[in-house]
């Protein structure tokens, strides 16, 4: 069994309303060093060992877990980053 962690974020240029709100809120709290806040999704997958595991996880991201029109994703597994 392998564990995959998936981080989904908006593509560059796509407005992120929750991120923008958190950004303003942090500035209001006096954290002047804040330059940008982006809020995305974090997904954990547990996958049975098998051939093409990573390719299949990528496919899952492209098909359902992320929308390529608006989102990018990063897959992380067993201390390796893809």
């Amino acid at each position: 069994m392998a564990r995959y962690e998936i981080f989904v974020t908006y593509k560059k240029g796509i407005f992120d309303p929750p991120g923008a709100t958190a950004e303003r809120a942090l500035a209001n709290l006096g954290y002047d060093e804040i330059q940008s806040v982006k809020i995305g999704k974090y997904i954990q997958l547990e996958v049975a060992d098998g051939p093409n595991a990573l390719t299949r996880v990528r496919e899952m991201c492209d098909k359902l877990l992320a929308n390529p029109v608006i989102e990018d994703y990063r897959i992380q597994s067993d201390e390796k980053d893809w």
Partner: peptide, 17 residues
């Protein structure tokens, strides 16, 4: 329809949340 790519683009959370 947007998710199914039957129409272009996507619908995000309202700007004012």
């Amino acid at each position: 329809l947007a998710e199914a790519h039957m129409l272009p683009g996507a619908l995000l959370r309202n700007r004012g949340l």
